[in-house]
Design a protein around this nucleic acid. Structure first.
Lengths: 206, 206
DNA sequence: GGCGCACTTGTCAGAGTCTGACACAAGTGG
DNA sequence: CCACTTGTGTCAGACTCTGACAAGTGCGCC
């Protein structure tokens, strides 16, 4: 599925993929506005599809589940964070490495095209429905599975696996809380600032 | 809902509630075995209901959602933990108080009637399906909302709200990781032991 | 140009979860 | 005996998600 389509285009994405991503982005935009206006549960897939000019079946070909419109591709952010973390020096305290990795994530965010408010809107919608929060936490679980081995490597052998899990989960909790309070804040507090304060609250015992 | 049914019986539960809980427990038992055998997604509500000798509609009168059979009532454990925590001395470090509260939770667990294995089975089923994990994390979110205010109270005023959230979330992460590894462990490692090690890994900065 | 090929989309049909409405049985208390 | 409450079954419906088939579109190749 992922590799050769006869003439594999070496430059990043194939034409099809570009178009696919564009449609995805459009659906996301439309759906987000509907959700923000009427609430996640009050909008049916059929309505989103209609607003985007497609059938409900086609919607599901772009997003396996309704929640995925808001959540996005779990692998994207996860891979990004993993890469940043992997690039940190091995003698840096893991907690700081994690902090920096998430910092990089929230900094690059000023989302694709839109303003910063777009990200906030997305986050607010995400927090408004229980099923969305749940799905989002599941995404973090995937991230945890990507990060934990790398963290474990840097820990003293003693109980490394368990401790790595704890540390990663706590770091994700920091990210979660920081973004949540950021989304609910009306003042200009930046996500980085909240992340900083969050990471300062806890510390792994070296 | 909770209070007077004409002649409010002062001794814990009304007769109706006892019967209701018994039916719930029975459904839970039957369903858990089916899940363990065939997998959560491969068992339909109708099949559970049939095995329990009732219609699917009746099943849903006991459990709003299929997942709830495994998850249980979120308020139960949460209220328990909240109560234990509230009883801890105010000068005890919050991290220790949280540890003790969760410790009390996992210790009282040797589930209602069954052996300890019953709890492990339940946990394993819970970990086997994504939708269950998600729902379970949501439950923890509710617990967090119950605990955070109490924790915030004990913190120095400076940034208490944010820090309380971080600490509670991290504590819940410890609980989660401890129970997860416990469920997957075949040796006789106790949950308390794992919880102990988990809580030892991180520390809030006082 | 005509031909297949890959990909996308729509329609149809179906399974599964969950909810509301109604009717019926059974136990309780006046 | 008559309400009243509660538990249950049946029926109908909304919604999400999936599989299968048919039709349309753009592309390279002969």
């Amino acid at each position: 599925m992922s590799s050769t389509t006869s003439s594999g285009p070496s430059s990043g994405q194939s034409l099809r993929e570009i178009s696919r991503d564009a449609v995805r982005a459009r659906i996301n935009e439309i759906a987000l506005d509907l959700f923000a206006e009427r609430g996640f549960d009050q909008v049916t897939v059929e309505q989103i599809a209609a607003a985007a000019g497609m059938s409900a079946r086609t919607f599901h070909r772009y997003f396996p589940a309704k929640e995925d419109v808001v959540i996005g591709d779990p692998a994207h952010g996860g891979e990004f964070v993993r890469a940043v973390f992997a690039g940190r020096p091995a003698d840096e305290p893991v907690w700081d490495s994690l902090h920096l990795s998430f910092e990089a994530l929230v900094t690059r965010s000023p989302q694709k095209g839109g303003d910063d408010d777009r990200g906030k809107l997305s986050m607010r919608v995400l927090l408004s429905a229980a099923s969305l929060r749940a799905r989002s936490l599941e995404k973090h679980l995937l991230w945890a599975r990507m990060l934990t081995p790398l963290v474990a490597e840097r820990l003293p052998a003693d109980d490394a696996a368990l401790r790595a899990e704890i540390i990663v989960q706590s770091a994700l909790a920091c990210l979660d809380v920081a973004l949540t309070t950021w989304a609910n804040a009306d003042d200009g507090t930046t996500a980085s600032e909240l992340l900083e304060r969050s990471f300062a609250t806890m510390r792994p015992q070296v």
